Amino acid sequence: MSESRNTIPDALRPPIIRDRSEPRFPGGPAADPAGSHHERRIRSFQPRRSRVTTGQEDALQRLWPVWGLDIDGRRVLDLDEMFGGLPVVLEIGFGMGEATARMAADDPGTGILAVDVHTPGQGNLLGLAERGGLENVRVANGDAIILLREMLAPGALHGMRVYFPDPWPKKRHHKRRLIQPEFLTLAAGRLAPGAVLHCATDWEPYAEQMLDVLGAHPGFENTVDGGGYAPRPAFRPLTRFEGQGLDKGHTVHDLLFRRVPAES
Rank of each mutant, 00 (worst) to 15 (best):
R149V: 04
R149T: 13
R149F: 03
R149P: 13
E150G: 01
E150H: 14
E150W: 03
E150R: 15
M151W: 06
M151V: 05
M151E: 15
L152V: 05
L152T: 03
A153D: 10
A153M: 03
A153V: 01
P154D: 12
G155S: 11
A156Q: 03
L157F: 01
H158V: 02
H158I: 00
H158Y: 06
H158L: 05
G159T: 12
M160S: 14
R161K: 14
V162D: 00
V162Q: 03
Y163K: 01
F164Q: 04
F164T: 02
P165H: 07
P165N: 09
P165C: 11
P165T: 09
D166W: 08
D166Q: 05
P167I: 03
P167D: 08
W168P: 05
W168E: 05
W168G: 05
K170Y: 05
K170W: 09
H173Y: 07
H174Y: 12
H174Q: 13
K175E: 11
K175H: 11
K175C: 10
K175V: 09
K175T: 10
K175Q: 11
K175M: 08
K175A: 11
R176L: 08
R176M: 09
R177Q: 10
R177P: 13
L178A: 13
L178S: 07
L178V: 09
I179V: 15
Q180E: 14
Q180R: 15
P181I: 08
P181R: 08
E182M: 04
E182G: 12
F183G: 03
F183N: 04
L184K: 04
L184E: 07
L184P: 11
T185C: 05
T185E: 15
T185R: 14
L186G: 04
A187P: 03
A188G: 14
L191Q: 08
L191R: 05
A192T: 03
A192N: 01
A192L: 03
A192R: 10
A192I: 00
A192F: 01
P193F: 06
P193V: 07
P193N: 11
P193M: 10
G194M: 13
A195C: 11
L197E: 01
L197A: 15
L197D: 01
H198N: 10
H198A: 09
H198Q: 09
A200Q: 02
T201M: 01
T201E: 00
T201W: 00
T201P: 02
D202W: 00
E204V: 02
P205Y: 12
P205C: 12
Y206R: 07
Y206S: 04
A207D: 13
A207Y: 06
A207T: 05
A207W: 04
E208P: 03
Q209R: 15
M210T: 14
D212V: 10
V213W: 06
V213L: 11
L214I: 11
L214P: 12
G215T: 13
H217G: 13
H217I: 11
P218E: 14
P218K: 07
